[in-house]
Amino acid sequence: MTFRDIVPIIILVAFLALVPVFITANTVLNFLVFTLIVALAAQGWNILGGFGGQFSFGHAAFFGTGAYAAALLQARLGINPWTAFAIGSAAGGAVGWVIGYLSFRSGLRGSYFALVTLAFAEVLRILANAATFTGGAAGVLIKLDVRPENFQFESRGAFFWIALALVGAVLVLTRWIERSRFGAQLVAVRENEAAAKALGVDTLRVKLGAITLSGAVTAAAGCLYAQYFLYVDANIAYGTWISVEAILAPIIGGLGTVLGPLVGAVALHGLGEITKLAAGSVPGIDLMVFGALLVVAVAFAPDGILGLLRRLRRPIRSSGVSGHA
């Protein structure tokens, strides 16, 4: 990877960083921070699902581990939140490695892998909901103590910049994966695992690397969530909502692309807000649209929004070539 590879990312992030300078309304910043947290979780999913072709339906396992680690380390052990953030992300990576080791070693793939990840997330949710250490169903509160060294800020803008910096860092990381030998091997595993193996790719090691990175990134999103809302419980942290969001954003934006998860998260949540404005406060209406959109996207735009844009740019050349699965 050369510097030129990341110039577009730097320009994009710098442009987005200007947003809080012009918009100071708390509702808008709230929406943007939440969207960035979802985008970060989705970027994690995209490393494993988009580049590696392993569709996890249980990324809540990583998100929740990050959220709980960040909250519990502070609330129970009094560890500094910035340190807790780092430990939380690492814990997500470790959980990813363990789940990956168990399921990839047993040769699980496709729907079996989707099911086993779902089950792991569900086990963690039940445990977190029942254990006393995690506060049970009441959840964990992080004490309000607004100091920058405490990872709590007066303005929402500061949080926006931190979230944006993390999303930007993962954009660079994903760009590196795309360009690296590791990334090429990962894509080879996605396209044809048997062929990749025959060519000497250590498929288990590649998939384990992907799920560990994926888990760490999604756990970082979980840490950020806990730090922003200062509260987690089992249904937020390990709930299916985040597993679903993490899948939807890359697919809507563009599976296995650097910008896909971010584009998808912004498009989805923008659309969600518009639906809520149009339909009033009917519960579930935005998610209903998301679900329908997922079906439509798979049917008509398998390469997501970015794929559609690319097709618009080159209408003639793409007509003979069908998109990959």
Binding site: F55, F57, V244, I247, I251, L287, M288, F290, G291, A292, L293, L294, V295, V298, A299
Partner: peptide
């Protein structure tokens, strides 16, 4: 993915 989308919808 389609059945997941249906279930959400």
């Amino acid at each position: 993915l389609v059945t997941l989308g249906l279930s959400i919808a």
